[in-house]
């Protein structure tokens, strides 16, 4: 069964400018994405490609203009936020910015306990605290008791992203969406966060839709890759195949522009 499926999804924004001209912007154009159970799928594209819009639609944060979105076989497009609440427990979302995704006034413990307080109404306060401490340990924020009472401002970027991961996996959701989870982090810290994500995925067997601008990273992390340009998937396949034999002109351009693949010769001419 597919964990997450977007079928023929289109998203249109109407654009009114100060000069009065009216137009339509097609952020997603007949987009289909299918993430199978246990699979890590990479969604690659540059800014404006529609990859973040796709992530938001996949998570129910945004409704598509047309098309179907299903989470674990259940349609979630067109549902109200209230109706979505049940499905939300099945999906964890990890945002790019570890500084903006946690309420600065919450303690770390409270931030991570949020999913339990919403979706596990029968859990007692002490049960929730135990679960949160376990999660802190799991994401490498030890001693957990110490991190539990800290405020986000006392944490480094990497530590905050660990908190974001702890919250996203709190309910052991079958589906995770990660939107550029390490692009704001230093490369050594990014490596640790990615390792953590891979280990947790192996443990929970969750599916991951991994959104990134970094084709090299997606090759390392993912089972399958989809390349997006201008709201469409222009190429997909096994990461090693796509990198070795890209068929789409835009994919070729993207690969040729990777600094790791460029040589001095490519700088001339």
């Amino acid at each position: 069964m597919s964990a997450l499926s977007l079928k023929n999804v289109t998203k249109i924004y109407s654009t009114g400018s100060v000069f009065g001209s009216r137009g339509q912007f097609r952020a997603l154009d007949d987009l289909s994405i299918d993430v199978q159970e246990g699979e890590i799928v990479g969604l690659v594209g540059e800014s404006g490609s529609g990859k973040s819009t796709a992530a938001r639609i996949g998570s129910g944060l945004l409704s598509p203009s047309t098309g179907e979105v299903s989470l674990l076989g259940t349609r979630i497009d067109g549902l109200s936020q209230r109706e979505l609440r049940g499905s939300r427990a099945d999906l964890g979302f990890i945002f790019q910015n570890p500084y903006g995704s946690i309420n600065p006034r919450d303690t770390i413990g409270r931030a991570i306990s949020l999913p339990f307080r919403i979706h596990r109404r029968t859990m007692s306060a002490s049960e929730i605290k135990t679960a949160v401490l376990d999660l802190l340990e799991r994401v490498g924020l030890a001693p957990a008791e110490e991190f539990y009472g800290k405020s986000p401002s006392q944490l480094s970027g990497g530590q905050r992203q660990r908190v974001a991961i702890a919250r996203a996996i709190a309910l052991r959701p079958p589906m995770l969406i990660a939107d550029e989870p390490v692009s704001a982090l230093d490369v050594t810290i990014a490596g640790q966060i990615l390792e953590l994500m891979l280990d947790i995925q192996t443990e929970l067997r969750s599916s991951i839709l991994f959104i990134s601008h970094d084709l090299g990273l997606v090759q390392t992390m993912c089972d399958r890759v989809l390349v997006m340009n201008k709201g469409r998937v222009v190429e997909q396949g096994l990461p090693s195949d796509v990198l070795a034999n890209p068929s789409d002109p835009y994919t070729k351009q993207l690969i040729a522009a990777m600094p790791s693949r460029m040589t001095r010769k490519d700088l001339v001419g």
Binding site: G38, A190, G191, D199, T202, G216, L217, T220
Partner: peptide, 18 residues
């Protein structure tokens, strides 16, 4: 880190375990 050595190892571990 830049070569993503440790991430690649974690990915290989994952594939083996899965």
């Amino acid at each position: 880190s830049s070569r993503r050595d440790t991430v690649r190892e974690a990915a290989q571990r994952r594939v083996a375990l899965m």
